[in-house]
Write a protein that binds this DNA or RNA. Structure first.
Length: 953
RNA sequence: GCUCAGAUGGUGGAACUGGUAGACACGCAGGACUUAAAAUCCUGUGCCCUCAACAGGCGUGCGGGUUCGAUUCCCGCUCUGAGUACCA
């Protein structure tokens, strides 16, 4: 029978499903291997050809690892909470659970027909209560934990309470809010229960706090920093503004350093690690307090006196009005400070502005506000700022320094205040030059200070008081000691990363298992989990502006306490899902100890690089937290990460002729001739174009208006224009895998996706070569059949040539798969099949081994041939990968390329046993080579055994 | 601006540690089979010169360098893509 892919593929997909062929047991003598794909968000559009690329690669790898004797866990599931389903619900009134389920069904059908070896018994859906119960449970663990810097890990909140009981707040080294109180054990004992709760909240790893958030009015929710790109929402591209709100946050900053250090221990692509490093943004430096010289009124009395004495924030307020604290990475240049700058949004600007300067300052703030976030970031050239009228004192030399505001200082980083050192920092230099502030040289190695700043750390310090003559290292050490002793600062590490906002004012997400009593948050009881998402009438905020959950009727804890109305963000469910896969059916724990002890971590994780600073960072954070609590084994969740490239769309165009008046006609010009006419360019559905040739009949049928279209052809064909763009519906360049699978089968589709090029490289989708892959599989099938398409193999001793072809491919595939070079394997399979076809190989043992080697790529056809070869049905997946024997590849002769002065001239067959002297003689006595040499005396002969002979004349 | 990745025939790409550049496939051209077409099979196919063969010249973004020998290593530049953006 000819190669009938449809029957074969259906048959084996059914067999694998019915026999649970890929079910992975958590108990096995085999070594474990965990291959994970980034699970998809099931969108309404279904899968396009770009989605399965990574899944195919990971499936090839999983199947290969099984053949190599590993117990492989290769699961799949759905990240099924999220905005699109909710937006759709708002538009149509359909419950997101309903549309999500329908989308999942489509995804499942599409995934199934590609023949993946997923263990579906371990499927997870983040929107299932059985799943999000454990997401809520982990939230509760975070709420009940604090970060102890003493032990450098998270601990149960009870250990903090013990410390408070024993010694009060003294000696506590924790990652916490800035406004924690100092108290004695006796104070703690006298605190009311509410006061205790309020204080503990400042230490919890997930906490409620008034903070400036990214508010997206169009989406009606706050967004995390990684969900905002250049001032616009990542999803939908809506404007985002800053707003103060009471918000749940995750104290990811507690893990900043561990997240940074961990990067050195994992095998991830360097760009991703670099992005995480930048995101964490560690800077080592010092904080320094500059005393404020109060602006004085004309009669000499202090203008600002004991401000805000009745203000709630009086503690901060008082300190603030004594000092301005700056963070600097160059404390060694402190003697070069000639001014101080605050961010325009800095909360004390108004109070530190003198009456005289008030108009200028207010004008400047108004100007800055007008500039959008984007303008402000884009325009880094223009120098701007305004003088407050106040002065501060440089603690190093008691110099009086003017206090400015400028928008090059960001409120959100460090303390929102900067010391200006024009000689050492280019921005400060530009500022000082523009406003005529002094530029003070601080090192004898600084050059060209009339032109630009010189940030050198070389040389000895000058003009720098007590650090004069010291080098960089000595100066920093001395200054840091001095700051500490004087109590005006200290060595400090600053991170760019902020705590992660954890609440979303949306419906379709995990409810936060918290209720409020007297304005304070409390966890619900663990036995009450899951806190199920309540039904609501419509998926919009309430009239009073509360999140959609505010619509739920009678939704109160124990009938009387308000629940938290925000839901968790999209990344909650995906920050631990790889553990749930290990033990997906467990009703008692999020994962059993046995399962974690066996599977430990993910050995190979394949997914897109767009999750670099979102999912991949949050997952590492939760993983470290779970490790601190002893719930999991490994410090890092994903040992090796591969980013598959993006599949871009390849759009096709037709050129519609335009008449004299500029009106569109019904005539279309082939791409090569379009310059001779006046035309307009239109997208055409790529599914009616083959190899850039338009199927004109299908084009006429595509739309009514084209029914009578006429064509100006070249060589009898209509050639379409081509451009690479994002794959999207509106560009008519979306290719659905279903179509290709129906036409060529899953095995061809899998191999073609791999054949396209290196996995990590982005590339446009192009079906031009798929015929070649299909022809290859047919040729492979024919190896096992005679001319009448009858199955026919022979039992005989394989020939040397057959063994050589086989062992070449055994080695090649093994090498390629281990280094994730899947495209090169496909070419090599073609070579192997071409060679065996030429050899007219019908040898059973050779072909059987070839079936095993090819099976990770084309599992259906191989499973069919495996059973035709007489093996038990469906056992191929656990066959043993053939053992490579180098002896079969040994050659006794090699066609040496002979080059003269590095230019290849000819090949010469020589025995590989010959040594350098013998080769030299053979080469020089060859008449053809003598002809090339033209009697010139060879100066030198380079000989590399088995590689090359190079004659230098 | 900074960081990273990349640039090889008409196309996708191969060449793994410096050793025959262009494997494999697509496309194209020619041929076989066919009444014809499709499918299939065979042959050719980097560019230039040449009727053609032989021979030759040029060729891995550009310009240099190291080397017997460079797509591979080093220096400088151009372009493309991605990330990031006044982070003190």
């Amino acid at each position: 029978m000819d190669y009938q892919f449809k029957e074969i593929e259906q048959k084996w997909q059914k067999h694998w499903a019915e026999n649970q062929t890929f079910k992975a047991d958590s108990k096995s003598d085999k070594p474990k291997y965990y291959v994970l794909d980034m699970f998809p968000y099931p969108s309404g559009a279904g899968l396009h050809v770009g989605h399965p690329l990574g899944y195919i690669a990971s499936d090839v790898f999983s199947r290969y690892k099984r053949l190599k004797g590993f117990n492989v866990l290769h699961p799949m599931g759905y990240d099924s909470f999220g905005l699109p389903a909710e937006q759709y619900a708002i538009q149509t009134g359909q419950h997101p659970a309903v549309t999500t389920k329908a989308n999942i069904d489509t995804y499942r059908r599409q995934l199934d027909q590609i023949g993946f070896s997923f263990d579906w018994s371990k499927e997870v859906r983040t929107s299932d209560a059985e799943y999000y119960k454990w997401t809520q449970w982990i939230f509760m663990r975070l709420f009940n934990s604090w970060y102890n810097l003493e032990t450098d890990k998270a601990e149960d909140i009870s250990t903090l309470i013990e410390k408070f009981n024993a010694s009060g707040s003294a000696g506590i080294r924790a990652v916490c809010d800035e406004d924690t109180q100092s108290f004695l054990p006796s104070d703690w004992a006298n605190f009311t229960s509410e006061e205790k709760q309020a204080e503990l909240l400042k230490y919890r790893l997930t906490y409620l706090k008034e903070s400036t958030v990214n508010w997206c009015p169009a989406l009606g929710t706050v967004l995390a920093n990684d969900e905002v790109i250049g001032g616009f929402s990542e999803r939908g591209g809506y404007p985002v503004e800053q707003k103060k709100m009471m918000q749940w946050s995750m104290r990811i900053t507690a893990y900043a350093d561990r997240l940074l250090r961990g990067l050195d221990t994992i095998d991830w692509p360097e760009p991703i690690k670099e992005m995480q490093r930048n995101w964490i943004g560690k800077s080592v430096g010092a904080s320094v307090k500059f005393k404020i010289e109060r602006p004085k009124t004309e009669d000499g009395s202090l203008m600002i006196e004991n401000h805000h004495s009745e203000d709630k924030t009086s503690d901060i307020g008082h300190q603030a009005l004594d000092y301005i604290e700056v963070f600097t990475t160059r404390v060694d240049t402190i003697f070069g400070v000639s001014y101080l700058v605050l961010a325009p949004e800095h909360e004390w600007v108004a109070e530190l502005t003198t009456d005289e300067q008030r108009p200028a300052i207010e004008n400047y703030i108004a100007q800055t506000k007008k500039k959008s976030e984007l303008d402000r970031m884009a325009d880094t050239k223009t120098v701007s700022g305004a003088f407050t009228g106040s002065y501060v004192i440089n603690p190093a030399n008691n110099e009086r320094l003017p206090l400015w505001i400028a928008d090059y200082v960001l409120a959100g980083y460090g303390t929102g205040a900067v010391m200006g050192v024009p000689s050492g920092d280019q921005r400060d230099f530009a500022f000082a030059t523009h406003f005529n502030l002094p530029i003070i040289q601080v090192s004898d190695a600084q050059k060209n200070l009339d032109q630009q700043a010189d940030p050198t750390k070389e040389g000895k310090y000058i003009n720098s008081g007590f650090i004069n003559g010291l080098n960089y290292k000595e100066a920093v050490a001395k200054l840091n000691n001095w700051l500490e002793e004087e109590g005006i600062g200290k060595a400090k590490v600053n991170y760019r990363m902020r705590d992660a906002i954890f609440g979303r004012q949306r419906y379709w997400g995990e409810p936060i298992p918290v209720y409020f009593k007297d304005g304070l948050p409390y966890l619900i009881q663990e036995e009450e989990l899951p806190l199920v998402l309540p039904e609501i009438d419509k998926y919009l905020p309430t009239e009073t502006g509360e999140p959609p959950l505010g619509r739920a009727e009678n939704w109160k804890y124990h009938g009387k306490y308000e629940y938290e109305l925000s839901t968790m963000p999209g990344w909650a469910g995906s920050s631990w899902y790889w553990y749930r896969y290990m033990d997906a059916q467990n009703h008692k724990e999020f994962v059993s100890k046995e399962a974690v002890n066996y599977w430990k971590d993910v050995d190979l994780y394949i997914g897109g690089s767009e999750h670099a600073t979102g999912h991949l960072l949050y997952s590492r954070f939760w993983n470290k937290f779970l490790k601190d609590l002893g719930l999991v084994q490994e410090e890092e969740p994903f040992k090796k990460l591969i980013n598959q490239g993006m599949i871009q769309g390849r759009s096709n165009f037709v050129y519609r002729l335009v008449d004299e008046e500029g009106k569109a006609t019904n005539t279309f010009v082939s791409a090569g001739l379009r310059n001779e006419y006046k035309t307009i360019t239109l997208h055409v559905d790529v599914n009616i174009v083959e190899n850039d040739v338009l199927n004109v009949d299908k084009f006429k049928a595509w739309r009514d208006e084209y029914a009578n279209a006429e064509f100006i052809l070249e060589n009898g064909k209509y050639i379409c224009g081509v451009e690479v763009e994002k794959m999207s519906k509106s560009k008519y360049n979306v290719v659905n895998p279903d179509v290709l699978i129906a036409q060529y089968g899953a095995d061809t589709f899998r191999m073609y996706e791999m054949f396209l090029g290196p996995l990590e490289q982005s590339k446009p989708w192009n079906t031009n070569g798929i015929e070649g892959v299909f022809k290859f599989l047919r040729k492979f099938w024919r190896l096992f059949h005679n001319d009448a398409w009858e199955f026919s193999v022979v039992d005989a001793e394989p020939s040397k040539a057959e063994l050589k072809a086989l062992h070449k491919i055994i080695k090649k595939v093994q090498d390629d798969v281990e280094r994730f070079s899947f495209n090169t394997s496909v070419s090599s399979f073609m070579i192997a099949v071409n060679e065996l076809t030429d050899l007219k190989c019908k040898n059973r043992s050779i072909l059987q081994d070839l079936v095993i080697v090819l099976s990770p790529y084309a599992p259906h056809i191989c499973e069919e041939l495996w059973s035709l070869l007489g093996n038990a049905a469906g056992t191929l997946s656990y066959a043993a990968y053939p053992v490579f024997n180098a002896a079969y590849l040994v050659e006794d002769e090699f066609a040496y390329p002979i080059s003269i002065n590095g230019k290849m001239k000819m090949n010469l067959n020589l025995a590989l046993t010959l040594d350098e002297q013998q080769v030299r003689e053979a080469v020089l006595s060859n008449t053809q080579i003598q002809g090339y040499l033209e009697d010139k005396e060879p100066k030198k002969i380079i000989f590399v055994k088995g590689k090359i002979v190079n004659i230098v004349v």
